[in-house]
Write a protein that binds this DNA or RNA. Structure first.
Lengths: 339, 339
DNA sequence: ACTGTTAGTGTCAGCGCTAACGCGAGCTTC
DNA sequence: GAAGCTCGCGTTAGCGCTGACACTAACAGT
């Protein structure tokens, strides 16, 4: 029964001072036990640990972050996590940063990246120690806010030699080229493409078309749909493609989900894959080896991107010299039965 | 060039006081413009807004949260987001809470919920205004920490009449029963089940077996695999089931991804679905209407759960009277071609 | 004229924590 | 044995913001 009259503003919950009193040390010593244990003798540590356990103390990182200017928070912006494309990158990121004592604040920017700017402002008001963005950024105001925040920035899932700060990704244009080259080499000549309308899909399209143009193929029907593509939209677009009279011998889909839809539509029309039409996806999602026929696709190391991005960010936040600032993780064409 | 000597600890970035000076008002007025605009005259507001824009001021919610005891942060714990099962719930939650000015801190507890307790502690140290948990909680220490935090708690994706605080979910046991009843009614008698080993999958199994027992069916081979199930593990388990000599006429899979694997394995062995074996899934993921044959499954309103949970949480955080504390969103058996 | 009320703004103190520096004890060094 | 060092801990002063309350002006009611 304490007779002290706590100010009306106090929260009533256990604070670091309460722990310090119980342990018979000063508050800063408790702080050190928690954050810089190497500065404290084992005896003191023991006493303080005991006091923490008895009081059930839970640190207040709002206060800690305000005082130290380190929130131990990292923000990550993704267009969506409902496609497993980004979800796994997010998981790998969260795992690695979690080990190092950081938490990840997830921002979902949506596909037309409509409110990206507002979202970024909301996120920066949490004073994250680092920020990860999906895609390379274009809006000048976004760029400027990021620079003003003076924190490590990692851009992922895309490639540019001149990122805002650091980058872990790959060239979507080269993916498109590789797919074009691959399909040409397999002997396909009447190509078509079904893809999302986001920047990265457009880059893949550009590479694809340029590869084909290099082989004298110019008329390539391209169906664009709002990202992210799904099995349903893939099926619809394949139907439209065929209904419009196109007879492609190979279709490049901008995601494995789309490709699955294309397979479904082809099969429902009695077309054999790859006999009547070959199908190629992008992403190598977990179901892709098991579709009928198994899907030829482009593999991206999704977890690897998250893990490497986390590593790069940690290096910078902890003042270590990180690996290179720009890392191209590449990609791999995985040949299966559908081509 | 200011001659003031800022303390060595100041961050150098624009603060609310800087804005106040430029606008010729007191700091609290700037605070009110941002947080309680109804208390300020339009003229003042105009001047302050102008000053905010000119300085590029970004509020510091660490400081704001510390002073006001409202972090405007909501924590959400999921076992994983790599399965679209939870990803959509998370998206719906984030969307609704984002509209109301809250951000969502994502915690990934993993499937054996190994570090749930540590994760919870890390999360509570951010002083979230509310917390959402997937599944109903069992660990006493987790329960106690949640109660001690004195914040709204919403448990989702499960059902109990006695949640810690609020609940938005459905009964997995009743799902199992409904599936059992459905398959029996369709005339299947040699049933089997392939499922994850997590609590909720076990509940579905329990309901399934109890329904079958009610019809005199006792020997039901059950394959348990580590959650979350995938197409690959589904295929493996179906192979094992058959290789062990079982000849089920219907298989209930604990997720649509597993069911897709079962379909693949059956087809690769030349078995027709549902002729030789019927397959039923759980979840109604976006690909499920498009598998071959289209998958009979159990639909859960995944986005609805997120939206309703957000609504319930907001009501409590804003002191409004929320809807009921326990909401059973139910489920729906979706009959397609695979049964 | 006096009191009461309301709207708009300001003053003050403090939320819970940590950076920076201070200080004494125990040691080494020459 | 005085100076200098290291180690472990304490004192002080904020970090940037908002709650509580104070104050003033304008107006209404009696």
């Amino acid at each position: 029964m304490s007779r002290s009259t706590p100010s009306s503003r106090s929260s009533g919950s256990v604070t670091l001072s309460d722990v310090a009193k119980l342990a018979g040390v000063s508050p800063i010593t408790v702080s050190r036990v928690l954050n810089r244990p190497e500065l404290v003798t084992p005896d003191t540590m023991e006493v303080v640990r005991e006091a923490i356990a008895r009081t059930g103390y839970v640190p207040n990182m709002l206060a800690g972050g305000l005082a130290s200017k380190r929130s131990r928070l990292v923000a990550a912006l993704f267009p969506t996590i409902a496609s497993s494309m980004f979800a796994e990158t997010m998981e790998a990121l969260t795992d690695r940063l979690g080990e190092a004592g950081y938490q990840v604040l997830l921002g979902l920017s949506g596909y037309p990246a409509a409110r990206e700017d507002d979202l970024l402002e909301a996120i920066l008001s949490r004073r994250p120690d680092g920020i990860l963005l999906t895609g390379i950024v274009h809006s000048a105001s976004t760029r400027q806010k990021l620079l003003a925040a003076k924190i490590p920035v990692v851009e992922i899932w895309d490639y540019t030699p001149t990122p805002i700060d650091m980058l872990v990704g790959f060239s979507h244009e080269r993916v498109g080229e590789a797919v074009g080259d691959y399909l040409i080499a397999k002997g396909y000549r009447r190509l078509a493409m079904i893809g999302g309308d986001d920047d990265r899909a457009m880059q893949r399209r550009k590479g694809f078309l340029s590869s084909l143009a290099g082989h004298g193929i110019e008329d390539v029907p391209t169906m664009a749909i709002p990202a992210p593509g799904s099995l349903r939209t893939g099926r619809q677009q394949m139907a439209r493609l065929l209904d419009e009279g196109h007879r492609p011998d190979a279709v490049f889909c901008n995601s494995d989900a789309l490709a699955q839809g294309v397979l479904a539509e082809a099969q429902s029309r009695g077309m054999s894959v790859p006999g009547d039409v070959a199908v190629m996806g992008f992403g190598d999602l977990d179901f892709s080896p098991y579709t009928f026929p198994a899907l030829t696709t482009v593999r991206i190391d999704r977890r690897g991107i998250g893990r490497i991005a986390a590593e790069a960010m940690l290096a910078r936040m902890e003042g270590r010299a990180g690996p290179e600032k720009v890392l191209d993780v590449g990609f791999e064409v995985i040949e299966r039965e559908s081509t």
